[in-house]
Design a protein around this nucleic acid. Structure first.
Length: 258
DNA sequence: CTGCAGGCCCTTA
DNA sequence: TAAGGGCCTGCA
């Protein structure tokens, strides 16, 4: 029994694109060159199909299981915000995943102005030639813009091919980025074509695990417009803004789509 | 056939 | 520095 954990909510939370539902109670998680099957035994009870070592070394970290979400929820509820209360109750099993940085960068570059099913499709096609493993930067070195375009990337093709080149020539340094704090990381990321404020914040949150990050997508903007009269002070979510964003995002999509 | 999807870039004032 | 048009593609 893992507290505050629901694989279905996580899979549909829009932060990752390689968790798929295989059958009613079976989920396939692809990350870090690994495949993990998670079976839902009954409500809230899960079985991870992996060794204790892999659980400890990979998946516990990936699913952010060491973080105490109950205490974060408590702090959010103490803000006495009726909308957030509903959002937290709805998304009880959401966790902000600690994903691979490079995969997050590429995934969210692709995500702009695209729908989730299409993003999933493109990423799946991108991984196909590499046996389903998300390609490392240098695996893509021989890719031309046209090769990316064939995946259905449209005008984003040039962003990807340009970024892959930047990694190759050392202008884009992943290891250096990993050491950066929030403001510096955002500034660094936005220097590259195809990464604006929203995508940079997604990368900071999901790839660098910086909890100050607060991606402002159309859903969040809509919430702020409709529920907060156009202004929301996120500085009060000190140290867990990114998690609040995730609750808001999922709840808003639920409200809009039913 | 239009409109639009979890933005970004570039050009104007 | 804020606002607005255009953008690949696929699907409703």
């Amino acid at each position: 029994m893992i507290p505050d954990f629901c694989i279905e909510q996580i899979a549909n939370s829009g932060q990752c694109f390689r968790i798929t539902q295989e059958s009613a109670n079976l989920w396939k998680v692809m990350a870090f060159r690994q495949v993990l099957y998670i079976r839902c035994i009954k409500q809230g009870i899960y079985e991870f199909d992996c060794s204790p070592e892999d659980y400890r070394d990979i998946w516990e970290n990936y699913f952010d299981l060491k973080r105490n979400y109950a205490s974060i929820k408590k702090r959010i509820l103490e803000l006495d915000d009726p909308y957030l209360k509903m959002a937290v109750e709805y998304g009880f099993g959401i966790r902000v995943l600690k994903q691979d940085l490079w995969e997050v960068i590429i995934s969210f570059m692709i995500s702009q102005h695209n729908s989730i099913p299409k993003i999933r499709g493109i990423i799946s096609k991108l991984c196909e030639p590499f046996d389903g493993v998300f390609p490392l930067p240098h695996w893509l070195r021989c890719y031309e813009e046209d090769d990316f375009a064939k995946l259905g990337l449209g005008y984003r093709s040039q962003y990807l091919s340009s970024l892959v080149r930047s990694v190759a020539d050392g202008r884009f340094d992943l290891e250096r980025l990993k050491k950066m704090q929030y403001p510096e990381a955002i500034e660094y990321l936005k220097k590259f074509k195809g990464i604006g404020d929203k995508v940079a914040n997604c990368i900071a949150l999901y790839g660098l695990h910086l909890m100050e990050a607060f991606p402002m997508d159309v859903w969040i903007k809509r919430v702020i417009q409709d529920k907060y009269n156009g202004f929301l002070d996120i500085s009060k979510f000190d140290g867990y803004a990114g998690i609040v964003q995730q609750y808001m995002f999922c709840y808003e999509r639920f409200l809009q789509r039913g």
